[in-house]
Simulated scan of single mutants.
Amino acid sequence: MRQKLRVAAYAVCVLDGRILLARSPGPGGVPEWVLPGGGMEHGEDPFDTVVREVAEETGYRIDVSGLLGVGSLRLVRRRRRGLFARSVDHHGVQIMYEGNVVGGELRAEVGGSTDLAAWHDLSEVSGLNRVPLVDIALRLWRERPAAGRVPD
């Protein structure tokens, strides 16, 4: 079985009761809202990753004001390529930071993994089609657990 590790850094940017999210095509082409952020490049510091990814996906420059927590997700997926099917043991590590917008202008990413960036009222997030990481990160942002992890 093939093993795949992905380390990614994400930003929770909240301003005036609104959170900054990016829209991704999602599985099956159904759009879903995600935190701005993404995968670390080899040799890149996660702090630099989140600053770069937010700029790429939203057009904003941010200051990182704190580490909210670290998440870990493991999935085994069966992938089919032509006549062959193969299982992949995927392990994702998500580093979540708090970010404050300090410059730039809101815009959509061009040629990337997202196609729109927008501010959403915190009270309306539960009604959005979103990835579970949005809820986990918001809980970390609200509760600030000392261990940097949302209890099960």
Rank of each mutant, 00 (worst) to 15 (best):
55 A>P: 03
29 G>I: 05
93 V>P: 00
46 P>F: 03
128 L>V: 04
128 L>K: 01
59 G>S: 08
54 V>I: 03
48 D>E: 14
78 R>L: 12
104 G>L: 04
110 V>T: 10
114 T>Q: 04
41 E>C: 06
143 E>Y: 00
80 R>A: 10
49 T>E: 00
19 I>S: 13
123 S>K: 03
115 D>I: 04
63 D>P: 06
45 D>E: 09
94 Q>D: 14
106 L>K: 08
38 G>F: 00
86 R>L: 14
81 R>L: 07
84 F>T: 15
150 V>S: 07
94 Q>V: 09
147 A>N: 15
77 R>A: 03
19 I>L: 08
53 E>P: 13
13 C>T: 15
32 E>L: 10
38 G>N: 00
12 V>Y: 00
32 E>T: 11
55 A>T: 10
82 G>P: 07
124 E>N: 04
124 E>C: 01
122 L>M: 02
74 R>I: 10
91 H>P: 02
89 D>A: 14
127 G>A: 13
37 G>F: 00
59 G>E: 08
51 V>G: 01
118 A>N: 11
128 L>Y: 09
125 V>L: 12
19 I>Y: 02
68 L>E: 07
125 V>K: 05
29 G>T: 02
62 I>W: 00
25 P>F: 01
6 R>C: 12
62 I>S: 08
66 G>V: 07
43 G>D: 07
112 G>K: 12
124 E>F: 06
125 V>N: 11
35 L>D: 03
72 S>R: 13
60 Y>T: 02
24 S>R: 09
71 G>Y: 00
20 L>R: 09
96 M>N: 14
106 L>N: 07
149 R>H: 15
13 C>F: 06
72 S>M: 11
149 R>N: 12
90 H>D: 13
66 G>F: 14
75 L>P: 08
104 G>Q: 09
18 R>E: 10
68 L>N: 13
138 L>I: 03
3 Q>R: 13
59 G>I: 09
127 G>F: 08
71 G>W: 05
69 G>H: 08
68 L>R: 11
2 R>Y: 06
39 G>K: 12
55 A>S: 09
137 A>H: 12
88 V>R: 15
50 V>S: 04
99 G>K: 00
46 P>L: 02
59 G>W: 13
152 D>R: 05
10 Y>N: 01
137 A>C: 14
135 D>T: 03
139 R>Q: 10
51 V>L: 05
99 G>Q: 06
32 E>I: 06
22 A>Q: 03
127 G>R: 14
85 A>H: 01
53 E>W: 04
23 R>M: 11
138 L>E: 04
47 F>N: 02
40 M>T: 00
46 P>R: 04
107 R>N: 05
42 H>P: 05
146 A>I: 07
73 L>W: 01
95 I>L: 01
118 A>Q: 15
34 V>R: 08
58 T>I: 06
33 W>V: 02
90 H>S: 13
152 D>Q: 12
129 N>R: 11
95 I>N: 04
60 Y>F: 15
30 V>A: 11
83 L>H: 14
83 L>R: 13
16 D>P: 10
64 V>G: 02
56 E>M: 09
